[in-house]
Every structure is written in C-alpha cells, then in structure tokens.
C-alpha cells in the first residue's frame, strides 16, 4: 500500500482559507478557556494521519430510522435526510460510517445534562448511525429537532440542527459538524454557525428542502451533501 511507504505518502489538502472555524471565537463563550494560545505545530501528514479506522455494519449496526422506538412514533415532524459524501475532487466516499445525534422536536436532548424545561419523548432517543453506499449516498429518517436556549448570551437560542460525525479514509479527514435547516431565523444570531468566516462555507452547512427525497403522504425530505478533504495533488517528499 502506498500509504505504508513513507517516501510516497500523499497527504490531505490544507483547508481553504475561511472555510473552517477558528477555535478562538470569543462570541462563543465556551471557547475562551478551551482554545490553545500557541499555533499548532506544522507537520506534513504521515501514515498516522493518512490512515484511519474502518467500521463494519456487523460491529456497528445501522439505525436508519430513529423516528420511532419499538414501533411507537416519536412526537414531531417526521423528516428524511439524505445526501452524498464526496471528497474535494468529487469522488464519492463509499462505505463510511455517519453518526448522528440531535434534540427532540421540543428542543430537548435525551441527555442527563440537558435541563431545558421542555418535555422528553419516550419514543425518541435522538441518536443513529448509517453507512454510505458504494456511491457515497446515505439516508435516514428522523424528527425535525427543535430550537433550544443555551445561555451563551442573553436570550441565546441554538437554531434547529442535527449533529453529524464522519470519518472518511484517514484520521486527517475526521469531521464533526452540524446540519442546519433552510429559512431558520436563528441562524443569523448563532455564534457557532458564524464561527465559520466564509459565507459560502456557512451556507453549505444548511440542508436544502428536496422534493425528490420527500416521500408522499409520509415525510418531508432534506438534502445534505458533505465534502471531506481531498488528497494533495502531488506527493510531497520528506
């Protein structure tokens, strides 16, 4: 395997300027004591960063419909989220694990630390896992999450969002992000969303309503495509 031969390592591309959030984002209060003050050490990717974990559905069973528990439907608006995962060169990322978690329709997480005064739903745990197919497509059914207050500043509310976790081919391609919903007025006020400097990069975190994903007489569909880092064009010598 090329990756195992140090002299021929092909690393992953550096982030495009403005496309990633800075950990030093004062408007998001929790960053203040949690962002490093030193610049990260520049170091070209090696086999440690270009390889990464593989997950099999046998060990990590998929849960493509989290809109019900034991046959009981969760409260709220049922939705289908689908999309495609590609790299920066447009190549599909096949058979990769996608993890999701979210609040329920009332804006409450099934989590002991969430004390928001909104009802829990016994038929919604808000966590799931799917795998992309050979062409990089994934799809799951859930409930549209509610907005919730979060005390970052006066009258702060997180926009509706679903958390996503992706792995891709290497540890360098690991990505944790959040998917937002189109037309949400809270997006304009959210410091987590606005931590991404580039407006286009922010827009790409917003799913779009998709009639093709929408299932008649059943659920609205949203499309959320995700791009993981691509390989550097040319191998770098040590």
């Amino acid at each position: 395997m090329t990756d195992q031969r140090g002299s021929e390592i092909i690393g992953f591309r550096a982030p495009a300027p403005g496309s990633q959030p800075s950990n030093d984002t004062p408007a998001y209060g929790s960053t203040r004591k949690r962002h490093p003050l030193h610049r990260p050490l520049a170091f070209a990717h090696t086999v440690t960063e270009t390889t990464g974990p593989r997950f099999s559905p046998a060990q990590f069973p998929a849960t493509a419909d989290i809109s019900m528990v034991k046959g009981h439907a969760a409260m709220g608006e049922r939705i289908i989220v689908s999309g495609r995962i590609t790299d920066e060169d447009g190549r599909p990322v096949p058979h990769t694990m996608v993890e999701i978690w979210q609040a329920n329709a009332a804006g409450r997480y099934h989590h002991p630390r969430d004390q928001h005064d909104a009802p829990l739903d016994p038929h919604f745990t808000g966590t799931g896992r799917v795998f992309t197919d050979a062409e990089g497509f994934y799809r799951f059914t859930t409930i549209k999450p509610g907005a919730y207050p979060w005390r970052n500043h006066h009258n702060a509310w997180r926009p509706n969002h679903i958390h996503f976790s992706y792995f891709g081919p290497g540890f360098a391609t690991r990505l944790i992000t959040q998917m937002y919903f189109p037309g949400d007025p809270l997006l304009a006020l959210d410091p987590v969303f606005h931590a991404v400097p580039d407006a286009g990069a922010r827009e790409r975190l917003i799913a779009r309503f998709d009639l093709d994903t929408t299932q008649p007489e059943w659920a609205l569909g949203y499309r959320f495509d995700v791009v993981l880092r691509g390989r550097d064009a040319t191998p770098m010598e040590g």
């Binding site: 920066e88 060169d89 609040a103 969430d114 990505l175 992000t177 969303f193 993981l228 691509g230």
Partner: peptide, 13 residues
C-alpha cells in the same frame, strides 16, 4: 473542485 465542509463543535450532548 469542492471545498471541504466546515467543522462545528461536538457540543455538550
């Protein structure tokens, strides 16, 4: 060429 999707915090939950 596309640009890699932005990261967001993993959050408290």
């Amino acid at each position: 060429m596309s640009i890699a999707t932005a990261a967001q915090t993993i959050g408290p939950y």
